[in-house]
Design a protein around this nucleic acid. Structure first.
Lengths: 138, 138
DNA sequence: CCGCGTAATCGAAATCATTACGATTTATAA
DNA sequence: TTATAAATCGTAATGATTTCGATTACGCGG
């Protein structure tokens, strides 16, 4: 997802264009990886000092709800990244060193015949972890 | 894994048989689901009041390292359960209401041909969420 | 059965991520 | 420009987890 599409979605849902939102989205758009609220704060502090965690978490949650971001939990922390391709179901390889991601189009649920009679399956999580090429050689 | 096997592993690794460990393991052996440190504490308080979180977390971590327990992260909290079958790779359906689990023998990594040249794949997570039969009817 | 050395535990404080809240500021549309 | 509701700030509260010095208990050798 690019910045233009993100702002379109925000406008459609009556969210205002604020400086903080611009910086948060720009940071996420520039990074092809999962980042924490803390990462976002560190970046924003450079050009918009004094931002509060309230603002960061509130907006990250909003963006995720609107489908602009994807969210996952890594080592006990919430992580966010720009949605690769909104509406498209996919999974990720995630580098445990730098957090960079790589999309995996295949979905286990479509391949595995999971038979759980009387169970209501609602969602699933499939993530592959390891080292990306850059971190592997280091 | 049953209690006997768990104690064998502990003895082999020079861990002492203490009252707290007995209660913690008994609680886990009785429950076919993922529980939190808090769940363990609540249970133990009944018959061994005054146990500290230090003891609980330390032992849960020890048990996990020894392969007696399995660990996963759900909604931001560490969850533990008795290892279904040590040495056997498997996944879980997890009820989002009561935490009860059901083993899924199939593994996506064996079915999906994931091609990531130069990437070093180290591990993966595959979990299915939803409602178990009991919670589904309620 | 007793005492010793070490592992295990306690109690409580510290840490870390996240959430919450009253007061203030800002974006947008009339 | 001004009204008004949204957005933000600063900071405090919360909740899970980790840490630490002091104390207690396990299990072996005598």
């Amino acid at each position: 997802m690019n910045l233009t599409s993100a702002w379109e979605i925000l406008q459609e849902n009556d969210f205002k264009r604020t400086k903080n939102r611009e910086v948060i989205l720009r940071f996420l758009a520039e990074n092809n990886r999962y980042v924490t609220a803390s990462d976002v704060k560190d970046y924003i502090e450079k050009e918009n000092p004094g931002i509060s965690f309230d603002t960061i978490y509130r907006n990250l949650t909003t963006f995720t709800t609107l489908g602009i971001l994807e969210e996952t939990e890594l080592t006990g922390e919430r992580h966010f990244r720009m949605h690769c391709d909104p509406g498209t179901h996919h999974h990720h390889f995630i580098c445990t060193i730098c957090g960079i991601t790589r999309s995996i189009a295949q979905c286990p649920m479509e391949v595995l015949a999971i038979h759980l009679p009387n169970y209501e399956i609602e969602s699933h999580k499939f993530e592959v972890y390891g080292k990306c090429p850059d971190c592997a050689v280091a």
